[in-house]
Structure formats: C-alpha cells, structure tokens
C-alpha cells in the first residue's frame, strides 16, 4: 500500500539531491540542473498533497503548472546569464563569479 508518506519521502530525497548539486557543484550549468531537480521535487509534493488531501479540488495542479512556468523562465534567463558571463570571463565556474567582492 503506497500512502502519502511514500510520495513525500520521495520528494524530500529528490529535493536534497538537488540541493546537494546546487551547493557543491563548480559549474553554473550543473547548479541550474540541481535547481531543476529541486523544483521537480516540489511538484511531486504538490501533486501528492492534492491527490491524497483534496482530490476533488485542482489547486495543487494549478500550483504545479505555475511552478513549471517559473522554472522554464528561470532556466532560460539563467542560461542567458551564464552565456553572457562566459563571453566576458571565459569561465562558467561559480567560484569565479566574484564581481561583487568588496
């Protein structure tokens, strides 16, 4: 019997994997991949809550759609930024993005 807890734990595992990728990777593109994993985990949680707590309302689905919209916008702008920085500095390593250092 698969209950709500199984889906929530799956979401938590995926979120923490994504968090690890976002925190510990050197390449900015890999950091973006980690963020995508985290957003997917959030969507799993939203849909699991919608399915098990209020299956007759569609609020979780609508929220998940908005998360997907924001994720698509975020990855497009993020990659444009990475490409622009690469043109300037010839690197995509996050540690080298240090303009704001005082």
């Amino acid at each position: 019997m698969i209950t709500l807890n199984h889906y929530l734990i799956l979401g938590a595992v995926l979120f923490c994997i994504g968090l690890y990728g976002a925190l510990a990777k050197r390449s900015a593109v890999a950091v973006l991949m980690g963020i995508e994993l985290m957003l997917n985990a959030v969507n799993i949680n939203l849909l699991a809550f919608n399915r098990f707590l209020t299956p007759d309302k569609m609020v979780g689905h609508v929220f998940a759609i908005f998360v997907i919209v924001v994720a698509a916008a975020e990855v497009a702008v993020g990659l444009a930024l990475v490409i622009n920085i690469y043109r300037d500095r010839s690197t995509t390593m996050v540690d080298d993005f240090d303009w704001l250092k005082w």
Binding site: Y7, I44, A48, R51, H61, I65
Partner: peptide, 11 residues
C-alpha cells in the same frame, strides 16, 4: 511517471 501514479495525466 510519478505524476501518472498520482492521477495527474495533464501534468
């Protein structure tokens, strides 16, 4: 596939 299990076909 997880979404399919959660009966969210559109998503």
């Amino acid at each position: 596939a997880t979404y399919v299990l959660l009966q969210a076909d559109f998503l």
